[in-house]
Design a protein around this nucleic acid. Structure first.
Lengths: 396, 396
DNA sequence: CTTCTTTGTCCACTCAGTGGAGAAAGTTCG
DNA sequence: CGAACTTTCTCCACTGAGTGGACAAAGAAG
């Protein structure tokens, strides 16, 4: 199939495409209720969109008490590729233009192997999805990487955990390989976009998404838009001091949040506890699997192991300490907790909440929900698809 | 004089008014270089602005190698009132439409006396300025108050240091009294607006302004716009924990930044040091004046008193500790330090810088200037005038 | 005085967008 | 079943924003 190359010609068309993306098939009349345009003008723009092929007719809708309306919808053959590269694994998904996931693959990966090896793997995963009949090609792709990105160019900058990626032209290289437009962003920002599009943050304009995985980061949404900072490193909260004179961190300082709580730190602390004989439960799991992960700690806690529970609580306390500061500063309408450690569930959430509600002022926390993300491992790829669709569904 | 009531009829006119405000008198040709409009259309809009009286002709400009141009400028009779209410003093100023200060009064004040008493004082100050011939009336007023504000309504919400102000309809009441449009905001946000308009932040889009006065707060500018948070309490950093298990704070927690460093905290610590005989210099000043202020500490430090210097350094360290976290999170392009304690000058700045540069990651701090505000006590009133002018110079 | 440049005005033209008339296609109810 | 009402969609004349070129006015340079 020939890929779509058309773009909306004006802001009206862009708006209509976004309405169709977020609301599914719609009649001209229904669209007219949502945009501030006369029916005549609306019809003109819809017709133009039909001509481009981005939008297709979709039969008649049920009557609402009068003449039945002719529905239109986004071309169901459009395909977006969503890629979420983490430190230790990668998610690749195919969506339609309404950002519904049609296929999703997760594979382990070591991001330190560098961009060439990683993209070889990503492209083969994309090829696999294509071969299974889900797509004949891609109309756009969104890529998330676990580090700061110079957003306009789509290039990682000084990523601490991804040596070899600094300055690699991700956007350009992948656009060439895939033959379609590509947008690149930080993985945490994509998670925020995902939760905004299809998750708990659907109705929020100003919110934070704290992603606790191998590392820890924060997505910032201001007025419905992701805020990336002057150099693209906004939300890099892993190295805020959580514990004065605390643990030595890889960054050279002491007491960084990430050194005290993250997937990696939790695994380390659990292993330490097991080896020191502080938890039989954890020791058993260590002996069984040869290594401990956050999931093991969650399971141990669920089994009633108090040491594991203490580790989670202590981590939640540190995290809550930092979040409390951010809440005072940013006064968000919602805080979402997500990432790999979401498996720790309500024990973690309770510890974070306790700390935040205790440390922040009532005006900022009075009506502040702190909740777990809704989308789990798909948040990133949905966010990636949303990123490229926002780009493509905006005036050229 | 009859006050102007006209407002720009469209976005073009609003843009032109803002260009004339920020750039002073301008010819149609020069304006044309700055907006994306044909000369014909531009002339039409300028003519319409002339009709409203917001803009007046201003003679001929020097030739630029051809026919001399007819300058236009904002009506020089327009007057804005800028009011900056602090915890212990108030600034009232009159500006023209180009936001130049024509007259400025500062008076001591106790904000705890409540809105009625305070506004009586403010109105009498405004009357004094008017009586001195600077204005026959006001076309708009901006008001800053030392606490969170529900911005759209112009009403303080749950202000900790201003009991009695909660829910008082500042905007409406003052609009009635002054007979002109009024906008209300947090004092720190106004300082940020001031430094953005006429101070160090002129070229910045994303920056922070930390105001250290009686209390401590932070103005946040995102994409050139002040960010106020969901409930208007964004930037309330005084109660972020700076010292674990530190000093008891009035808010009920321990170790809040404000409990360790602010005008009030510094005065308290200095008095304590004087009474405990740790500093002869401070003891002398205490005996002389009966009470110590931040200015006394600054003077003592300048005189070589190491105890005073240590107090400043320690305060700078605590402040820097908190700012470091904000910098990691927000990745600003500039951090401005302002407020009453700016008198502590470079000793304070050095301490803050040291702490921030040590604690934040290179990508965020690499090119990050941390500087003192440029406008001193006028930042607030200029910001206030800017606030109302932004409101009036936007399409009605 | 001639030529070139800059500024400002005038005017015909294009195009986005409106709103009303009316046709087409339903539902509801006597 | 037919009449009346509702909803959807199209058509069309009209408004008003904005453009760009022609031209006049005013000055600079040689």
């Amino acid at each position: 199939m020939r890929r779509m190359t058309a773009r909306p010609a004006n802001a009206h068309q862009a708006r209509l495409l976004q309405l169709l993306r977020d609301g599914g098939p719609n009649s001209r009349a229904q669209l007219g209720d949502q945009v501030d345009l006369s029916r005549s003008k609306l019809a003109v723009e819809v017709d133009r969109l039909l001509e481009t092929g981005l939008v297709v007719a979709d039969g008649l809708a049920a009557s609402r008490g009068g003449r039945r309306s002719h529905n239109v919808r986004l071309n169901p053959e459009l395909r977006f590729l969503g890629v979420d590269i983490g430190a230790t694994s990668v998610d690749v998904a195919v969506t339609n233009a309404e950002l519904e996931i049609l296929g999703h693959i997760n594979q382990p990966l070591d991001v330190r192997e560098g961009p060439v090896a990683v993209f070889e793997q990503v492209l083969s995963m994309a090829a696999k999805l294509r071969a299974s009949g889900l797509a004949e090609g891609f109309d756009g792709a969104g890529i998330g990487v676990p580090g700061p990105v110079r957003f306009p160019e789509g290039v990682p900058v000084a990523p601490p955990i991804m040596p070899g990626w600094d300055g690699f032209p991700v956007r350009e290289a992948l656009s060439q390989e895939l033959g379609c437009p590509v947008m690149v962003d930080n993985d945490v920002n994509l998670m925020a976009l995902g939760e905004q599009h299809a998750g708990v943050a659907r109705t929020q304009h100003d919110f934070l998404v704290v992603k606790i995985g191998t590392g820890i980061g924060c997505g910032i949404v201001v007025g419905g838009e992701v805020y990336r900072g002057t150099t693209g490193s906004a939300g890099d909260i892993g190295h805020i001091q959580a514990v004065p004179d605390g643990r030595q961190c890889a960054c050279g300082n002491r007491g960084c949040l990430e050194a005290h709580f993250s997937g990696a730190a939790l695994a380390r602390d659990a292993t330490e506890a097991a080896q020191q004989g502080r938890s039989a439960e954890l020791a058993n799991r260590l002996a069984a699997s040869g290594g401990l992960s956050a999931a093991d700690v969650a399971a141990a806690a669920a089994a009633g192991d108090t040491t594991a529970l203490d580790l989670i609580r202590e981590g939640g306390r540190s995290t809550g300490q930092v979040i409390a500061g951010l809440v005072s500063f940013f006064n968000p309408g919602l805080v979402v907790i997500g990432g790999g450690v979401t498996g720790l569930g309500h024990n973690l959430l309770a510890a974070i909440r306790t700390q935040v509600y205790r440390q922040s002022l009532p005006l900022a926390t009075g009506n502040l929900p702190i909740v777990l993300g809704e989308l789990g491992p798909t948040a990133g790829v949905i966010g990636a698809a949303r990123l490229i669709s926002d780009h493509l569904f905006s005036p050229a």
